[in-house]
Design a protein around this nucleic acid. Structure first.
Length: 910
RNA sequence: GCCGAAGUGGCGGAAUCGGCAGACGCCCCCGAUUCAAAAUCGGGUACCCGAAAGGGUGUGUGGGUUCAAGUCCCACCUUCGGCACCA
């Protein structure tokens, strides 16, 4: 474990230090002695339980929420960091007099439970419940202020029953629907995935290849909310990180353009049949280039391409091409350097303005999932169309030329080597000649609209959310199919559709629910005498996390998913904290759900439409990797405890081998660069672990775990402990009528510290600087205490020290709650600090009337002077001249100009 | 390619409104204490020149605005993150 090369020390297990006289001192900072005591007192007094606001009651509420964990087996340092941040905020807000909701629960459905079943023969329910018990027990020693009476696990019927109800309501409103579509299929997980869950063509969870399959699946109409989800981001500015807002904006991908209709030629009409009866629609953002169209290109999956493949004049070639494309992996088709393959359909459409015959091609680069699945090709002004035209020898027609400089020549179609994609001035476009592009876009769209051949429109990248999963360990989709194939919601009084326990989980042959003897057998709700088939798919587990924050508001409510009044009173979440990895998926789904739940009447109409007012995305917890090289020079990763003090391995089989130091990476089991929270708490105590997590980096940045760093955190708390012990031991002195300068200065520092800590937690959410402010204070308390103990204290100093001890303990309590309550109990303090009000800053004491300011000569600092904060320029200048270092530079030169900002700077220009 | 964030000592980082760059911590060095060590306490610690006093340089690079720039403006470089044949 030791990385610093010297033996690590173990405070909790050390024998008590001895004094020269051989006596055991009464007090020593021993977290293992302090912490369990306080946690049991907190628990006994139900300190963290919070009652719901009564109807109509005006409470100053504050909802702090940390993203709900998946019960994977053990807590890791990333969790500890997340929850330490949340706990500081929760405790601080409570002390500030807020009515704080701070819950915790478990995101209990999901794939790993099924994998455990396959690998270890454990039932997913048992595995999950055991993990929850383990992780809850691991969280306990950290002293987080959760209201455990609100704990929930999403795999319980009391929870998922309500999402089944929500689903049936969504069906009624057309927000949930079933369609056959080309879906992302993960071969390893044997299930479909939503678009958001495909990263780089691979499954977000297991990293294996994703294929395209056409399947009948349930979707949620998130696209109906695309505009609101986009516009809602505006209101979140300031509260959410820019990065997350940008990622969501990106994902929604709204673009303005026009839908343009190309009517079909006669022979094309015959081939197309029903497929494109009304003509071929394309989407473009550059309607100004319409007169530069030399062909149109459709996606291989486009109905017209399919029609052309069966009965078109070039059917054989089209058929071959379409088949080839369907076999290509999406990743290859979308690759940057993928060739612009295509084939001519033999069909033609009519140009909406000129009526000219325009050939229809099928192109590999056209995506069925975006716009209309067909594009008008303007090779002169679109780089993809340009490449396609060059590759297939298609004509190029230039219709836009640069606007600046005036009279600049248009690109030459014969010699241009790349498309001219910038905006410019239209030409070769009849009545539109001379118009700038942006104006032209509107004019062309308007003309088409008048001809009923097009209109301005918007297009989104966002697709509807595919929620069916062919998995066992999830919430059953509450649907039955009649003999006629009609899909019907399970009637409300029959909910929940329980997930059966008696299943064989083998990992083969698809979902165990399909093979279950009775699960799929149901009755037709229209006529119970007729049989029906029950849906065997379960929900995407992002369902559960899309509304859990509402369930926490009234976790035992049994008349609906949550009590609308109570949820209305608690929501929105004031501070949400979690990992950046959920920037798109979870946070987009949850925003969508919250809006839907209001619109379905589950929440009061007037509820805030955005569920999370403020979002903090904490950085990853990282650690140096260590390894030895095997015979082939490949790294064999080592756990930190497998490296001894001399940099040699002590892993079995590699004893004594020299250890190489690898990169600093996110803590992961595969690289073995992990430390166990349990072990760290046992070694240093929870308070130290928490302080280190918050001090080492600002919350949004990555945090590098270091043994030396956590020892520093332990040292700080020990110092606090000793100093306060020593201050309390000082004999009381008579109140000072005229406090000494020393005493006044200390009180000033004290209240400035309190001020800083208050704004750092409450407004800036920057905990590292709050802790460093307290460290500075302690650095002043230590020598002052020693000085008082050694001699006669100056008037008021003892009082100032005692006040410092009291306030410091209160400031520290959100960070190191056990130690703070312990120290508080040794003062005259009563009860728990959490139940006390956050201390008030003594503004008068914090105000400094004299400050040290820098004196610059020609902008360079040459000395510093101590002046009254409101001193005049003359006073400051006179004082500066007395300073030898400044006088030397100033000589007897006359100042040309003097800039003086009271309390900040004096700059003399000579 | 587009969007976003960030570049500050040996390291993590601070500087909140344009006003003394490097707070606080780690590492390292010196001293006190100790039989000795640990712990603790005190001191030092951006870089360069200098014995010192002192001087010079310095917040990714190059310009600019200003009495004054880590902070504002312009151009660029690098790193990280997201999206990406999105029409």
């Amino acid at each position: 474990m030791t990385t610093s090369g010297r033996p690590s020390f173990r405070p909790a297990s050390l024998a008590p230090e001895t004094t020269p006289e051989g006596k055991t001192p009464r007090h020593k900072y021993e977290p293992a002695q302090i912490e369990p005591v306080w946690r049991s007192r907190w628990k006994k007094s139900k300190l963290f339980e919070v009652r719901d606001p009564k109807p109509g009651e005006l409470v100053d509420k504050y909802y702090v929420l940390e993203m709900l964990p998946y019960p994977s087996g053990r807590i890791h340092m990333g969790h500890v960091r997340n929850y330490s941040i949340g706990d500081v905020i929760a405790r601080f807000q409570r002390m500030r007099g807020k009515h704080v909701l701070h819950p915790m629960g478990w995101d209990a459905f999901g794939m790993p439970a099924e994998n455990a079943a396959i690998e270890r023969g454990r039932h997913p329910a048992d595995w999950t419940h055991e993990n929850i018990a383990t992780m809850r027990a691991q969280l306990e020693p950290l002293g987080f202020s959760y209201d455990w009476s609100r704990e929930l696990a999403t795999c319980e019927p009391e929870y998922y029953k309500w999402e089944q109800l929500i689903f049936t309501r969504m069906m009624e409103k057309g927000l949930a629907y079933k369609k056959s579509a080309i879906a992302n299929w993960c071969t390893r997980c044997e299930t479909v995935l939503a678009n958001e869950q495909v990263e780089d063509g691979k499954c977000w969870r297991c990293g294996s290849e994703v294929q395209q399959r056409e399947l009948d699946q349930w979707f949620l109409r998130i696209t109906r909310y695309a505009d609101e989800l986009l516009e809602g981001l505006e209101a979140l500015k300031g509260g959410w990180p820019d990065q997350v807002l940008a990622m969501q904006r990106n994902w929604i991908g709204k673009s303005f353009g026009a839908r343009i209709r190309f009517l079909l030629g006669d022979e094309t009409k015959k081939v197309a049949g029903d497929a494109s009866a009304d003509g071929l629609d394309v989407f473009t953002t550059r309607a100004d280039t319409l007169l530069g169209v030399t062909f149109v290109t459709v996606a291989p999956e486009h109905p017209l391409a399919r029609a052309a493949a069966t009965s078109g004049p070039n059917a054989a070639a089209v058929q071959a091409f379409v088949q080839k494309m369907s076999k290509l992996r999406d990743l290859d088709r979308a690759a940057d350097d993928a060739p612009k393959d295509g084939v001519f359909t033999g069909l033609h459409v009519k140009h909406p303005l000129t009526g000219a015959e325009v050939p229809v091609w099928v192109g590999s680069f056209v995506l069925m999932g975006y716009g209309t699945g067909a594009v008008m090709a303007v090779p002169a002004h679109d780089s993809r169309d340009f490449a396609f035209a060059k590759q297939h020898g298609l004509p190029i027609k230039v219709v836009i030329k640069p606007a600046l400089p005036a009279g600049a020549p248009a690109p030459d179609a014969a010699t241009m080597t790349e498309a001219f994609t910038e905006y410019g001035v239209m030409f070769g476009s009849g009545e539109f000649d001379g118009r700038p592009s942006d104006e032209g876009k509107k004019l062309v769209a308007a003309k088409l609209a008048a001809m009923k051949l097009g209109e301005e429109t918007t297009s989104y990248r966002l697709r509807d959310w595919l929620v069916s999963r062919q998995r066992y360990w999830g919430c059953p989709i509450p649907v039955v199919y009649g003999e006629d194939g009609v899909a019907m919601p399970v009637p409300e009084n029959e909910l929940p559709v329980l997930l059966p326990r008696d299943v064989q989980i083998t990992g083969e042959g698809g979902s165990p629910l399909v093979r279950h003897p009775t699960f799929s057998k149901a009755k037709d709700p229209r006529d119970p005498s007729k049989p029906a088939r029950r849906e065997t798919d379960t929900f995407d587990t992002f369902w559960e996390s899309s509304w859990y924050f509402l369930r926490y508001c009234s976790p035992h409510y049994d008349k609906g998913p949550f009590d609308p009044e109570v949820a209305g009173a608690w929501m929105p979440v004031d501070q949400y904290i979690g990992g950046i990895e959920h920037a798109v998926m979870h946070l987009l789904y949850a925003r969508f759900f919250h809006k839907v739940l209001i619109d379905l009447g589950f929440l009061p109409r007037g509820a805030a439409r955005e569920p999370f007012k403020s979002l903090l995305t904490q950085g990853m917890v990282c650690m140096q990797t260590s390894y030895v090289k095997d015979a082939k020079g490949m790294p064999l990763w080592l756990y930190p405890e497998q490296v001894d003090e001399n940099g040699k391995a002590r892993a079995p089989g590699y004893e004594g081998l020299p250890v190489e130091t690898g990169r600093v990476e996110k803590m992961s089991k595969s690289k073995k660069n992990v430390v166990d929270p349990d072990a760290m708490v046992a070694k240093y105590g929870a308070d130290t672990v928490r302080i280190f997590m918050l001090f080492a980096s600002p919350p949004e940045a990555e945090l590098v775990w270091s043994e030396a760093g956590i020892e520093g955190a332990y040292r700080f708390l020990s110092r606090v402990f000793r100093t306060i012990r020593d201050i309390l031991a000082l004999p009381k002195t008579a109140p000072a009528i005229e406090p000494s300068g020393e005493a006044t200065a200390l009180r000033c520092k004290l209240h400035q510290t309190l001020q800083r800590v208050t704004t750092d937690i409450g407004e800036r959410r920057q905990f590292n600087t709050a802790i460093s402010a307290m460290m500075e204070l302690v650095n002043e308390l230590v020598p002052a205490t020693a000085k008082v103990a050694a001699g006669t204290p100056s008037p008021g100093l003892v009082d100032a020290l005692k006040e410092s001890a009291e306030l410091l303990v209160q400031m520290l309590s959100p960070f190191a709650p056990h130690l703070a309550d312990e120290l508080w109990s040794t003062m005259e303090g009563e009860g728990f600090l959490l139940a006390r009000a956050w201390p008030k800053v003594d503004e008068d004491a914090a105000r400094e009337d004299h400050v040290e300011i820098g004196v610059q000569i020609n902008g360079k600092v040459r000395g510093r002077i101590r002046v009254a904060k409101d001193a005049t320029e003359e006073t400051a200048l006179a004082l500066a001249r007395e300073e030898a270092s400044i006088a030397a530079h100033l000589g007897d030169k006359k100042p040309k100009k003097v800039v003086y900002v009271a309390g900040r700077i004096l700059n003399v220009i000579v």
